[in-house]
Design a protein around this nucleic acid. Structure first.
Length: 124
RNA sequence: UUGGCUGGCUGGGCAGUCGCCGCUUACUUCGGUAGGGGGAGGAAAGUCCGGACUUCGCAGGGUAAAGUGCCAGGUAACGCCUGGGGAGCGAAAGCUCACGGCAAGUGCAGCAGAAAAUAUACCGCCGAUGGCGUUUGUGAAAACGGACGAACAGGUAAGGUUGAAAUGGUGCGGUAAGAGCGCACCGCGCUUAUGGCAACAUAAGUGGCAUGGUAAACCCCACUUGAAGUAAGACCAAAUAGGGAUCCUACAGGUGUGACCCGCACUGGAUCCGGGUAGGUUGCUUGAGCUUUGUGGCGACGCAAAGCCUAGAAGAAUGACUGUCCCAGACAGAAUCCGGCUUACAGGCCAGCCAAAUUU
RNA sequence: AGGGGUGUCGCCAAGCGGUAAGGCAACGGGUUUUGAUCCCGUCAUUCGUAGGUUCAAAUCCUGCCACCCCUG
């Protein structure tokens, strides 16, 4: 069942939010999910696939290595789960508590976000 | 072997699967597909210095401002590095040092202390010399002399409890008391000689102490510096607004350069046309490059030859998962590029040196 | 990425080489029947931190740390 029409688990340009306009579109009228690690905004995009945008603030995560690590984690998880997600645009923002979390806790937080999104979108 | 010092290297390895960003080759229905190959650091960091590169009117003169500060060398350049000198620390190997000038000028030093920069007043010491007082000797008297006293003139800077710092130090002589007043040694200054490119060192002579401290106080001396920064800038170009180039005239005023002055450019009129915001392309990686060998130099480093191409993004790429091995992986992520400095850093490896103990 | 600035008591701050002002707040006491007001007293051994210069540093110099602002 997974990946019935597209077998690829790639992460190309179409799956990302690229311009400021696309980000503004999400911010203008967004649904909000939160947990310990993230605040996630999402909005239906009218396409056949979901898209991902990242907004990892320097204020929340000080070190560049730390920010890179978080972005990689999110992208990786999104890449592997992309075919189970509804066609919405995501914008991920981080909370300060993420500094004290290990890799496994961040994975759990991401799984929580994907589950919650699916549930909310079924109600549309 | 233990402890210490110095210099350098390294910064998890291997295999598989799924992904990301350039390059290159082939195919292509021009969307892509397949193969090959590459893809963070020693600090990529702080932005503290120095350059390259680019633009501004091409940076000329003077002032101001800022920086550097023993000497010599290295370098594209430096506030960096190397070697040397001096001072300090250490038993040693070795380490540390903003290390020009207060005998050009000005300023500053609370409290305490006699006094804080002027060698003089005060306390004190002396009172030899001169005068004064008392007493006494000689003498007829004038006068002359002796002893004692006060501290009037005067001499003196030895001593004076302080302080961060007190006007060369110690000893001997000397004296009324004292004093570089004299002498010896030490310190300091000056002169000469020798060694050294020089900083400086050594020796001899000489002065009789002059030159207290503070320039990370103003300052003086020597040397250096135009400014901004790749979001610099260049090119292609929807929109919108009116400007731009060339020639001529004027030199008053205004505007412009990192601050000011000089200097310089522009502003006026006539003639002729294209302009440049969003967005895109470029700048963008071959470079004071790396490796090896030889060679000159104590060394930093230079020279020569051969070989190599080693990230270039634009929401921003190196990761995730699984297995396995070990000592269980620190600090940390390129954004124009180099040379340094500074700061962070689990551990591991190599070389040289010093000390102690032991063994041969 | 580049450029600029600020750190002094719980808060707002002055001081810029010689003993760290002041206000608010807090605490203790007085006045008052009680409260408010008012009055008196207490409150900084290391001025963000580590060194250096000086006899003496919050102040001068150097290196770090934290926070804030500007350009786009």
């Amino acid at each position: 069942m997974m990946g019935s029409e597209t077998n690829s688990f790639g992460f190309s340009q179409e799956l990302r939010l690229l311009s400021a306009k696309q980000f503004s579109f999400v911010f203008a009228d967004a649904n909000r999910i939160g947990n310990k690690a993230f605040t996630v905004l999402f909005r239906k995009n009218g396409q056949t696939h979901p898209r991902l945008g990242l907004a990892i603030a320097k204020k929340q995560v000080k070190l560049a290595t730390g920010r890179n690590l978080i972005k990689r984690k999110i992208r990786e998880s999104f890449r592997l789960n992309q075919h189970r997600l509804p066609a919405v645009d995501f914008v991920f923002m981080v909370r300060r508590d993420i500094n004290h979390m290990d890799a496994k806790a961040i994975d759990d937080a991401l799984a929580h976000v994907w589950r919650k999104t699916r549930k909310l979108c079924e109600n549309y």
